[in-house]
Design a protein around this nucleic acid. Structure first.
Lengths: 202, 202
DNA sequence: CGACAATCTAGAACAAGTTTCAGAGTTGTT
DNA sequence: AACAACTCTGAAACTTGTTCTAGATTGTCG
């Protein structure tokens, strides 16, 4: 059944690295223009200067591609956050501050957010590894914000559950905002509400 | 704002009512077999004994169709719940009990759950009305479970925010379970965790 | 009943994600 | 430099959601 050892694909050559980057950049560009629907595989390939088959070799589906793009963006964000970490007093406030800052960044490119988040929540079992990458990055960002309130042995199961709930709320609240069913104020309120759980477990 | 009068489409004839029902039943059947991907519009039409064009007249997209199916299922659930309401002591426990019961029901047909929840979270602005229907039903179920702790003037904004967070977690936790990234135990734990927010606001 | 409008059917056609394949280009090895 | 193995390209084909059309059926109202 599932073992399916990842073949630890050989490191990419410089040209391959460049192709991959061109693909991700093309995806971001198209996503910024019109969200999930505007990211069309043929157009991504053309914009990246790559054959369609090659695009599919690098990213086996549109969802893989967009989730990888999200991971890429999260890496930027994490870097930025490390330079200017949240300054609030309680862990809950720091997490809320972090997420609200990320939310503000997403508001600048709502279409890009649409493409990434819809792909993330639509992803099925076949995209597990890539989604795990995104979730792992997100978790790391939140744990960083919680900071020293995490015991020396790492977070407790209760803390991890609270972090998962925060992430669930984060993604689902974004979806409701992106599909026009919640206002920005409601999203902010929901983020602040769910972050109260953090203090309950620290 | 947002008036957007629904044209109050003329009441359906008996045969139309029956067609609609056949379509929803066919959708449920196919969804139970293989989830979102197994619900193929041509097959739904054939199974329901209806032309493809007719299917699209009743439900303008696959997502509309699946969200309508979800609403249909939620109505069943709500009816069942009214007959045997949760019996726990605190509001939070009653909400958790309700959701865990629903979760148990979904575990019996994980493929159906997959089809419905993926459609719900993937839905875009064009499906707003239908999604609002589902969210409204869900909210009603949760408010019922909270019960008399809700003041006479209806829930406060804080309570509504907490309910939204519970719903966010509910949907997102289901997604992670369905895509094999969380265990049943984790989902249960997350539901119990988020329900603690209910007591904080009552 | 008869006429008119709305609805339904069957099937073709179109759009975008995905797969496939033959041939050209690269890369690494010796 | 020559070979094998892998990668990339270009283009066609296939799949499934969605749209469109022409003709048959149904429902309503005089």
């Amino acid at each position: 059944m599932a073992a399916e050892v990842k073949p630890a694909s050989p490191p990419l050559t410089r040209r391959q690295e460049a192709r991959r980057r061109r693909i991700l950049d093309a995806t971001t560009l198209l996503a910024c223009r019109g969200g999930f629907d505007a990211v069309q595989m043929r157009e991504v390939a053309e914009e990246a200067g790559v054959a369609l088959g090659t695009l599919y070799r690098y990213f086996p589906s549109k969802v893989h591609l967009l989730v990888a793009t999200m991971r890429d963006q999260l890496e930027h964000l994490h870097t930025t956050l490390r330079k200017r970490p949240p300054a609030s007093d309680s862990p809950a406030e720091r997490v809320a501050e972090t997420l609200l800052r990320a939310f503000r960044a997403l508001q600048r490119d709502p279409y890009l957010a649409d493409a990434m988040v819809r792909a993330l929540t639509f992803a099925d079992r076949g995209v597990r590894d890539e989604v795990d990458g995104v979730i792992g990055r997100t978790t790391a960002i939140i744990l960083d914000a919680i900071g020293p309130s995490i015991g020396p042995q790492g977070p407790t199961p209760e803390q991890l559950s609270a972090v998962r709930v925060v992430e669930h709320t984060w993604h689902a609240a974004l979806i409701t905002w992106l599909s026009g069913r919640a206002t920005i104020a409601q999203v902010k309120s929901d983020i602040e509400t769910v972050c109260r759980l953090i203090d309950l477990t620290t």
